[in-house]
Write a protein that binds this DNA or RNA. Structure first.
Lengths: 366, 366
DNA sequence: GTGAAAGCGCTAACAC
DNA sequence: GTGTTAGCGCTTTCAC
């Protein structure tokens, strides 16, 4: 434990033992408190002593120890992020957005995957708690089991998914509205029987999207046929594939499908291919969430795009604000989704199939 | 600073102040050392006292403080990972693989993006260092500037990319060989002029892939024409798109193209579409790195697939071994790539276009 | 087996 | 402005 201090007399940096603030202070002939103030950039230090400290620090090759700092100050300068699966491009972009804003403020991002499993989510939250992350951002697995998230005094923001009754900052997109716009697009094209390939409704955002689906149908005076809602057993491509096949192999096959996530979209697209069904001739497809490949496939897929990066950035900004002491009432921020008409549903009004970012055919969905 | 300790007499968990080991020890009527041994699961504790401590701990709602533990023990139980961009599916899968193995051992993953910028990489490494991560995994931006990685005594593993002269564990795929196999595939199809769309050769893995390209040509007795190597200005889709267009708009257009990364592949694919060029009729395309969408597009793309998840897992295992005290000589682990013949190059020997995982047409490339 | 005591390297009152 | 002095909550000798 008590490693020998590096008090080498040579002008080169110390070698073996980590050099501490005390070493720097000694060499600069100032108190440890002054050295701390100089290096930490707080409190008052005269220009003269500051110079001496800085010089001593880099002669010695001093590196601050954030662990010691965290223990003494109570702040770790870290934020934890729990997502379903970092391999999902949606979450990857979300993480990117969060990282961008928190790193810019000197914070480090800690990452964990829940795999949409409540126990893994709980373990991740617990691990972050014992690590004393200053703030926590979670895309919760479910809206019905949030006891582990209920930690008064510990900054928390929910992202992508909200939880009823949990009064914390929540950053989502307009899920229900986006889904409604999607389904209305299909309705406007004349479809009356619209199938759905979806992740579990346990996932809060998904349940909102299903709500949007139902509300669109009801708005058109149509009944909701639960048999047309194919729920995947897992949020994976193969889960989506299986659900899509089950839906599309029915004798009374639907001519239009709405997928509630990018994973389901990939599964459904592959199912359509395997069944030899063409879009939009055999089946029209509209998807929630946009991805790079949706514009590369033939035909390009009509989607409800989400401002994912901005979702992450906004969540990052909220957590920084809370960590910084913001005590204002919890905010529920809803970012708008956007209908991007491409070719998988056939074309309406002769609108040109567009790519993400193209203005003409991209109309706000919320 | 001196927050009041929770010494509530009620049987319910304490409220305000964090309960510490001292509180637990007091309540269990044992010394703090014994409480520490019981909770930390080390040293000797009698069954009887252990029970008392455990009971006191959960009556009080005790949570360990990993920061204090880290300061005292010198181990943070964290590992840092620096990748180019977590939004790149390749890195996302890599991160996933690392997370899987380190989390299983109770470690937490810290993440940073370098954006293929050496200064950002340096800052990330420095941030991880002051945070005292137990080990660091880096996919280095370049092979020519590695001073910041040279920290004797601090476990480091390089992943995806190696650095000459840095004698540390390195986990990569067989980049040169994979690229050679790709180009030989094109050669076997009769192509003699083969274009390349590539990221910067500064990136170590990319330079290896270019080496494989050159070696395949030379092996066939062909000269390398640098004019056919289109280098993107940035590792982004638009960078790849621009490079691909430049290459494909030449009067003496090549009939075969090799892309050196998934990002370049996406850019090239879009360029082909925009130029109205069909695969494989107008241009044959073979890509390094496989992605979900390469099997969804028409035609499915022939690729050199990498065991990405396994790359991450292996890197994770190496860092855990080093952190655990493994002092054996540095290992350079090379995972094999695999040629997966699909349809973007035309078909050879009547081989059936295959999907990732399909055995028949998937032949090991290394 | 168990407890007392000395830190880990830093921050933060507080007095000067 | 600067130094002194207590800790932050845990681990870890070292006696007993």
């Amino acid at each position: 434990m008590s490693a020998p201090k590096a008090t080498s007399q040579s002008e080169t940096a110390a070698r073996r033992a980590p050099v501490t603030l005390r070493d720097v202070a000694r060499r600069a002939n100032v108190s440890q408190a002054t050295a701390a103030r100089a290096m930490g950039g707080y409190g008052y230090v005269s220009a003269n002593r500051r110079r001496r400290v800085e010089q001593a620090a880099d002669e010695l090759g001093y590196r601050s120890n954030d662990i010691a700092r965290a223990l003494a100050s109570g702040s770790t300068k870290t934020v934890g992020l729990v997502v379903g699966d970092i391999e999902n491009p949606f979450f990857a972009a979300l993480a990117r957005g969060v990282a961008d804003v928190v790193e810019a403020e000197g914070y480090t991002l800690l990452l964990a995957n829940s795999d949409e499993d409540i126990e893994r989510e709980q373990r991740a939250v617990e691990a972050f708690r014992t690590r004393l992350v200053d703030g926590l951002i979670v895309a919760p697995v479910t809206g019905s089991d949030s006891a582990h998230l209920h930690q008064p005094g510990w900054p928390l923001v929910l992202v992508d998914r909200s939880i009823r009754g949990l009064d914390v900052d929540t950053v989502t997109v307009t899920n229900a509205r986006g889904a409604r716009v999607a389904v209305e697009h299909l309705l406007a094209l004349g479809h009356r029987r619209i199938g759905v390939v979806t992740d579990s409704a346990e996932i809060p955002s998904i349940s909102q999207r299903l709500r949007g689906y139902r509300s669109a149908l009801r708005g058109a005076g149509l009944a909701v046929d639960d048999a047309l809602i194919a729920v995947a057993e897992s949020s994976t491509l193969s889960g989506g594939y299986a659900a899509a096949r089950a839906l599309l192999e029915r004798a009374d096959r639907v001519r239009a499908v709405f997928t509630t996530s990018n994973v389901m979209t990939a599964g459904a697209t592959r199912a359509l291919q395997d069944l030899g069904l063409k879009m939009p001739a055999d089946v029209a497809l509209i998807a929630f969430d946009d991805l790079e490949w949706t514009t590369i496939v033939e035909p390009p897929i009509t989607v409800i795009a989400q401002p994912v990066l901005e979702l992450g950035r906004t969540a990052g900004r909220r957590i920084l604000a809370r960590v910084g002491g913001d005590n204002s009432p919890a905010q529920r921020i809803r970012l708008p989704t956007q209908l991007i008409v491409r070719a998988s549903c056939g074309e309406r009004d002769g609108a040109v199939p567009a790519r993400a970012g193209d203005a003409p055919a991209a109309v706000p969905a919320a």
